[in-house]
Design a protein around this nucleic acid. Structure first.
Length: 698
RNA sequence: GGCGCAGUAGUUCAGUUGGUUAGAAUGCCAGCCUGUCACGCUGGAGGUCGUGGGUUCGAGUCCCAUCUGCGUCGCCA
């Protein structure tokens, strides 16, 4: 084919030279006597010109009828454009290919949509024709940007001495956490593999094996409902290090993200990254993944409130709750409608109501609170929340958890309203000292907030069983712009502590052994202290590419119900496939009925036998006509057998012959024999007029 | 599973208090055009208004149900 360069990479250096360019027809401008085509490939656009003076007749005719998005090969001379015909909009705008001959490599059918002009096309349609969608530069650039991030990560990890190790996809179900995707085993009917939710256990085993530093860009699977930022299969950068403490891992992460941001975004991050203890994040930002691109910190005024004459505040403080405030600088001019809107929003988040103060620039204090508290107390309150004239202050008085949620949500809402969430800013931070356990009301037991292999702080060991709530874990999250990128922890490498944690989680000995026995067992043979981290690659790419949906950074994403519009997966399978796995569909389920219908219908599309295989097995070679006939007969037989199955034979009396005749003979009849050639006509192989019989044992 | 939004030509959309033959742009087809670059000009084809019911003399428009897609809550150690 001898393509000389990508369309988008031709330049003035090529002028005068013979060139061959291949690509997709993006637009065609047919002037009658001269035709311009914008030929496009992954690197950009090149104008190719068809002019009867230079182009041969057949090629010109081809250019006249070629349609958009067809694939074209063009040969000719790269020429400099006249000054007044230069196109500054494309990189190759000063040159053009003057075509001598061209070849239509692949014509394009009627398009469901034109990828050259499809930024607003319905996403469902685009996903059905994802291969066309991926021709759109924005999507192609996202996927290539993703590639650059991945290569950058690999380069960094390699430089840091990490070893890339693949871990199994067919693995063991670990019921803690999200729902697993299960894969039935054919060899062990009734047993199932699980697709990994993460390579967690394997990477810890690799540490026991002495690999010291492991990483993997690993596919993970979680069978939970989708969101814009959540796909059922997703990719993580997974890493683990031996002989490290929390600080070592955090420094490495800081290094990694700084390297990445420099390399792919050309942004130098400020170091060290901001670090917040979990409790601090929850109290100051109302979130364990605070958006630090803007201020608006939450201020606690509970001790002030306990002495307040405003009953709502006083009551909240007295009943063990908290009173918190957010000061919005310069927004004393919020309209009543805005304040009403904020109040409704707070209530939707679980608040009982929302007190507020608008401190006018002229010093007037406008608030319902004025009725309940003295001027003196008001001054004190305004001082505590750090307000100045012209500021707006809003309050939350509630139980701790409710107040954290409400103030956190309000803070983000204000950030959006005031356009403080600047998309060109990248605020990384690290959250440490998370609680080890979380009480789950519906299960009435403690569950691990991170995962059960996380090492608690040594000074909290004594409370593991007596007071799980106060146990903090050596775990950490990396947060970017209010999104949790990933999390990690120092792991437990001693089986005695691990057992205690399992105990705190209420796991029985048997259960522990069947689920994690192999890990605990491994720890008995010399396990180094170790810790690691994992973060969602898709999410990082999404954030850095400025997209709102993971679907825009994954080549072939799934939709909301976890199906794939392109391939139509998941789909029903042949009953025979299920039978091999020993799986029976629930009687009366939609799937079972659909399969029943398709399999008993004579119009079934996929035959349950493979004729070619049968031919090979029986060593018959059939003509096309015979093949058709055999196929038809076999299908009839199978249908007959299937229909017989559906016949209700219950209670049918035994058939009794009324005839006494026995030993009825057929009259012998001589039919002229076939010739030898006729007899041998269908044999697979003949030699010297005999059938070749292959040896029984081959 | 709950709540919200959307579905009209191949595509993107308009369509008034329910009222004649449902429009535009773009794409497609045919014709013209030798320097365009979102080329231009002339003409043409293209619609079960997601689907099914209902109200009405009359439904794209109102009501009910349903399907599909998106967002969100539940869920996601």
């Amino acid at each position: 084919m001898k393509r000389t360069n990508y369309c988008g990479l031709f330049s003035e250096k090529d002028v005068g030279g013979e060139a061959c360019a291949c690509g997709w027809v993006e637009t065609k401008r047919d002037m009658g006597g001269v035709i311009f085509i914008d030929l496009v490939d992954r690197e950009g656009t090149l104008q190719v010109v068809f002019n009867p003076m230079l182009t041969d007749k057949a090629t010109f005719a081809l250019a006249e009828r070629v349609r958009n998005q067809s694939v074209l090969l063009t040969r000719g001379i790269i020429a400099l454009r006249d000054e007044e015909t230069i196109n500054p909009k494309i990189a190759t705008g000063t040159v053009e290919l003057r075509v001598r001959e061209a070849e239509l490599l692949s014509p394009c059918d009627d398009l469901p949509f034109n990828p050259a002009d499809a930024d607003d096309v319905n996403e469902e349609l685009r996903l059905r024709y994802r291969f066309l969608d991926l021709r759109r530069p924005i999507l192609r650039n996202n996927i290539r940007f993703r590639h650059r991030i991945v290569s950058s990560i690999r380069r960094f990890m390699d430089e840091q001495g990490f070893v890339d190790v693949e871990t199994p996809m067919l693995t063991k179900s670990t019921p803690e956490g999200a729902r697993d995707y299960l894969v039935p085993s054919r060899v062990h009917p009734g047993s199932f593999y699980a697709l990994p939710q993460s390579p967690q256990i394997f990477k810890q085993l690799l540490m026991v094996s002495g690999f010291d530093r492991y990483y993997q860009i690993a596919r993970c699977f979680r069978d939970e409902d989708l969101r814009a930022d959540r796909q059922p299969e997703f990719t993580q950068l997974d890493l683990e290090m031996s002989f490290v403490e929390q600080e070592d891992v955090l420094l490495l992460l800081e290094e990694l993200f700084s390297y990445l941001m420099q390399d792919v975004m050309n942004i130098t991050l400020k170091r060290p990254f901001r670090r917040l203890a979990w409790q601090e994040a929850m109290d100051t930002y109302g979130s364990d993944k605070p958006d630090l691109r803007f201020g608006l910190p939450i201020v606690d005024i509970t001790s002030y409130a306990s002495t307040s004459s405003f009953t709502v505040f006083k009551k909240a403080a007295e009943e063990g709750g908290v009173v918190r405030a957010i000061t919005v600088p310069g927004k004393a001019d919020f309209t009543r409608a805005t304040i009403e809107h904020l109040t409704e929003f707070a209530i939707s988040q679980g608040a009982g109501g929302m007190a507020w103060i608008a401190w006018r620039p002229d010093g007037e204090v406008y608030s319902i609170l004025s009725k309940f508290i003295s001027q003196e107390n008001m001054d004190e309150l305004l001082r505590l929340v750090g307000a100045k004239p012209g500021d707006f202050v809003l309050f939350s008085a509630d139980k701790l958890n409710v107040s954290r949620r409400v103030t956190g949500a309000l803070r983000l809402k204000l950030g959006d309203m005031l356009a403080l969430r600047d998309s060109s800013k990248y605020a990384f931070c690290m959250i440490t000292d998370c609680p080890m356990f979380e009480y789950r009301e519906e299960d009435r037991r403690w569950v691990a907030q991170h995962h059960p292999f996380t090492m608690p702080y040594e000074e909290d060991f004594p409370y593991l069983l007596s007071d799980p709530a106060r146990v903090r874990s050596q775990s950490y999250d990396v947060v970017l712009n209010g999104t949790e990128l990933g999390s990690g922890s120092i792991r437990i490498h001693r089986s005695d502590i691990q057992k205690k944690v399992f105990e705190a989680l209420g796991l029985e000995e048997d259960e522990i052994n069947s689920r994690f026995g192999f890990l605990l067992n491994a720890f008995r043979y010399g396990a180094p202290p170790h810790g690691g981290f994992a973060f969602g690659l898709d999410r990082l790419v999404m954030l850095l590419a400025g997209e709102d949906s993971l679907r825009d950074v994954i080549a072939f994403p799934k939709i909301r119900d976890a199906s794939c519009l392109l391939t139509d997966a998941p789909s029903l399978v042949d009953p025979a496939q299920l039978a091999v796995l020993g799986i029976q569909l629930e009687k009366g389920s939609d799937a079972a009925q659909t399969i029943d219908k398709t399999s008993s219908s004579p119009k079934r599309k996929t035959p349950v036998f493979n004729l070619a295989e049968l031919e090979a097995q029986t060593r018959l070679s059939l003509t096309q006509d015979e093949e058709r006939l055999v196929h038809h007969r076999l299908t009839q037989l199978i249908d007959l057998a299937e229909n017989m199955q559906t016949v209700d034979t219950e209670g049918v009396p035994m058939t009794i012959s009324p005839s006494d005749e026995k030993g009825v003979y057929l009259t012998p009849e001589t039919i002229p024999g076939a010739s030898r050639d006729q007899l041998l006509f269908n044999t697979a192989e003949t030699r010297d007029g005999f059938i070749v019989v292959p040896p029984v044992v081959e």
